[in-house]
């Protein structure tokens, strides 16, 4: 089973990287009023059971993949 974890800077948390990207996009002539840069993690899991897989990924997120102080995350399970 595959899973995708999307990690984002939490709302309200300053994201200097996103700001830098926005400034560069503006320089190129694009009109962008907000840019946030996060991270995407593709996982290939050995678990077959979706509930089990989701529980595992949830734990991965809280133990390593995201820092809950500054990041939020979203888990997408992809059925094989």
């Amino acid at each position: 089973m595959k899973a995708v974890v999307m990690v984002r800077p939490k709302e309200g948390i300053l994201d200097p990287q996103g700001d830098a990207v926005r400034h560069s996009l503006r320089k190129l002539g694009f009109e962008v009023s907000g840019t946030r840069v996060g991270r995407l993690i593709d996982l290939e899991l050995t678990a077959d059971d979706p509930a089990d897989a989701e529980a595992q990924v949830e734990r991965m997120c809280s133990e390593l993949l995201a820092n809950p102080l500054i990041e939020s995350y979203e888990i997408l399970l992809e059925d094989p």
Partner: peptide, 16 residues
């Protein structure tokens, strides 16, 4: 901080 032995977290410098 990441090990949660200390409070808070270190983020990219504001000025990048």
């Amino acid at each position: 901080c990441e090990a949660r032995l200390l409070p808070g977290v270190l983020r990219p410098n504001r000025q990048l």
